[in-house]
Design a protein around this nucleic acid. Sequence first.
DNA 1: TTGACATGCAACCATTTGGTTGCCTATTAT
DNA 2: ATAATAGGCAACCAAATGGTTGCATGTCAA
Lengths: 104, 104
Amino acid sequence: MDEVFKALADASRRSLLDRLHARNGQTLNELCDGLAMTRQAVTKHLAILEEANLVTTIRHGREKLHYLNPMPIHQIGERWIKKFERGKLAALGELKRQLEKRDE
Amino acid sequence: MDEVFKALADASRRSLLDRLHARNGQTLNELCDGLAMTRQAVTKHLAILEEANLVTTIRHGREKLHYLNPMPIHQIGERWIKKFERGKLAALGELKRQLEKRDE
DNA sequence: TTGACATGCAACCATTTGGTTGCCTATTAT
DNA sequence: ATAATAGGCAACCAAATGGTTGCATGTCAA
């Protein structure tokens, strides 16, 4: 779980996921296109995404195809975000109440 | 958005949010209890959470009360995670297909 | 078979991060 | 008044992070 949060903490990595979301199964060089980074930097980012199981790769000859694995993102939604959804309104209400009390 | 992701990337900070989720409106010292960290380290974490708008504080005499603001978490769920929910099954299907093709 | 293409590996670098210690200030209780 | 309590500030530090460059390797096409 921690690895997933850490992987998502970087904007470049999130944009790589976005690109794979738009078109799955891209090669390393395709994913580099248009990014203001060297290929090696992208390689490192993809390694982190792979480590976090957000991306799965398949070698196909001299190419390496990258596929998005949406499960970890889904799990963060289920196991973490939803916990804060419950009680969200209560927390907001309390926050509002306390902010108002401040001005007494 | 980036600030929120970065704030959530640290396990200590997520645990602080958990604690506030369990009991809202705690003081700095209360939040320090049981953590293997100095008070100053916790202060820094809370500052990052505050910066990301995940926590709002109210001074009350010499105490500083910390309140959870669940909105940024909610927004990440809405604006980011849900995007990957759509097409999740398609992506998983394609992933499976490619993984099988690998063994041909 | 030889050159071009796709990727991998390793060393290096600056900056950020997560933490510490030491001391200072403000508020409350005795 | 004074001691204890709650928190703030600043300097410092080691390790992690995000990036680079240079070179090596494997694979495909002419």
